[in-house]
Every structure is written in C-alpha cells, then in structure tokens.
Simulated scan of single mutants.
Amino acid sequence: MASAKPVVIYPPDEEGGRRVRIDSQVAGRAYSVRDVVAFCQEAGLQGWDEMDVVRSALIEWRGGGPDVWTR
C-alpha cells in the first residue's frame, strides 16, 4: 500500500463516536469499523476493507481497539 497514510482513531466520545485523523487531517467521526474504512477510502486508501483497518500497523487506536465504541 504505497499510498498509505498514518491514521489515528481517538477514544470514544459520550455518543459512541470516535474522531478519525488521517495524515494530520480530521476525517470525521466514526461509529464503527465500517465508517473508518469509508474515511480511509475517501482519503485515497483505495481497496482497504474492514480487515485492513483492524490489522494495519498504520492505524493507531487510542482508548481501545477496533472493538471499543463506547466510553
């Protein structure tokens, strides 16, 4: 994945959303791994799927991994 960019997923907020930052730009709030996939694809990480998001070393999960969506 030559076009890979660093991705940071922040801890869940009180509504269960997690802020997503890709390559130092805030992409939005995700409510599931599927949302993170959509943000990654919009940022040019074409071909990424849920398994790529869960396993990628490019993604830094803060406040819990991909299975944590509540505070």
Rank of each mutant, 00 (worst) to 15 (best):
L45Q: 12
V26P: 01
R62H: 10
R55N: 08
P12K: 11
V37M: 01
V68G: 04
P11N: 01
Y31S: 13
Y10R: 10
M1D: 04
R21W: 08
Y31K: 13
W69P: 02
I22A: 05
E42P: 05
P11M: 06
P12R: 13
S24M: 13
G44E: 05
A43D: 07
V54E: 06
D52G: 04
A4E: 07
G47E: 01
S24P: 02
L45S: 00
S24A: 09
R21A: 14
I22Y: 08
A2S: 14
P12I: 06
W69Y: 10
G44K: 11
A38L: 11
R29W: 14
E15G: 14
D13L: 05
Q46Y: 09
D67K: 12
A57N: 11
D49N: 03
V8H: 05
C40G: 13
G17V: 09
E15M: 14
R21P: 04
E42L: 15
W69V: 03
L58I: 06
S24Y: 13
E15P: 05
M1R: 02
V54K: 09
I9P: 00
S32R: 02
L58M: 13
R29G: 07
G47F: 00
Q46K: 09
R19M: 12
G65Y: 03
D49Y: 01
P11K: 11
Q25A: 15
R62W: 07
V68A: 05
K5H: 07
E42V: 14
S3I: 12
V37Y: 01
W69K: 03
G63P: 04
Q25S: 12
V36A: 08
R62P: 04
E15H: 15
G64M: 08
G65P: 02
R29T: 14
G63M: 08
L58S: 08
R71V: 15
I9M: 09
C40D: 01
G16K: 10
R19F: 12
R71I: 13
A57Q: 09
M1E: 03
S24R: 15
M51C: 01
E42D: 15
P11C: 00
T70N: 15
D23G: 07
T70V: 15
T70E: 10
G44D: 06
V54A: 05
E15C: 10
V68K: 10
S32Q: 01
R29C: 14
P12N: 03
D35S: 10
A4G: 06
R55L: 02
G28A: 11
